[in-house]
Amino acid sequence: MQAMTEAQIKITVAGVAKQFDQAGSPVQALSNVDLTVRAGEFVSIAGPSGCGKSTLLYMLGGFLMPSAGRLLVDGKPISGPGVDRGVVFQEYALFPWLSVFDNIAYGLREKGLSAHDVRTTAERYIALIGLAGFEHRFPRELSGGMKQRVALARTFAYEPTILLLDEPFGALDAQTREIMQDELLRLWRTTGKTVLMVTHDVNEAVYLSNRVCVMSQRPGRIVQEFAIDLDRSTGREAVVLSDGYTAIRNAVWLAVRQQVTIASRSVP
């Protein structure tokens, strides 16, 4: 039984701290962060801005190394970036010199897929995100929502088992954001990936996740966890208007708000 639970744990963060050197003086971004994410789980991290939640995500991406503690994926320490972990960045990070098609094909080509497989997979994802006819456009010719869809598609296309999302919908208007959230929910449900999302939007975190972790002000650590048990099959309106959603949303909002207030009070 113990072995089985072990096998289901996808991500382990144990006692992680991160210190930056900012203009010669050390800044403690994270201290003593503990977190486990099970395979197939959708976990969000919410907290005041500047609390180091993106730093945690970048360490899981393998771009930054922790100052202390351990980060494991499938029980193995993270030593650098890897294709098992797909990352979607705040500003999309599409390659501006590549067309929509080539952006989505990038990860597939790096994976060494045959030209035929690259084409069929990329075309499937282009159709999936509703951008058929835009294959040869460059990112600068796309709206924010379209860029975000390309960013999600290019990450899903090469099939990482873990998705690391850094405020993926932060730059979108409210309507597009809702559409994209439902798109993500659908993709997550059909692919069964493990998702860790960083966001400052409490509604978004509660609506999408199985679990929301609230982080403290800097140095960030996880101060509270909320299990979210909502029946999402009823559609957005039914979910958002339900008493269950409202109650948990309010609880998470209060927890985040508390951290924000502490943060603003500590500013001299």
Binding site: G62, A93, F95, Y106
Partner: peptide
């Protein structure tokens, strides 16, 4: 060159 472009290429296996 924005760090984020380098990171996203590294994440995709470059």
């Amino acid at each position: 060159v924005p760090q984020i472009l380098v990171w996203s290429a590294r994440a995709m296996g470059t």
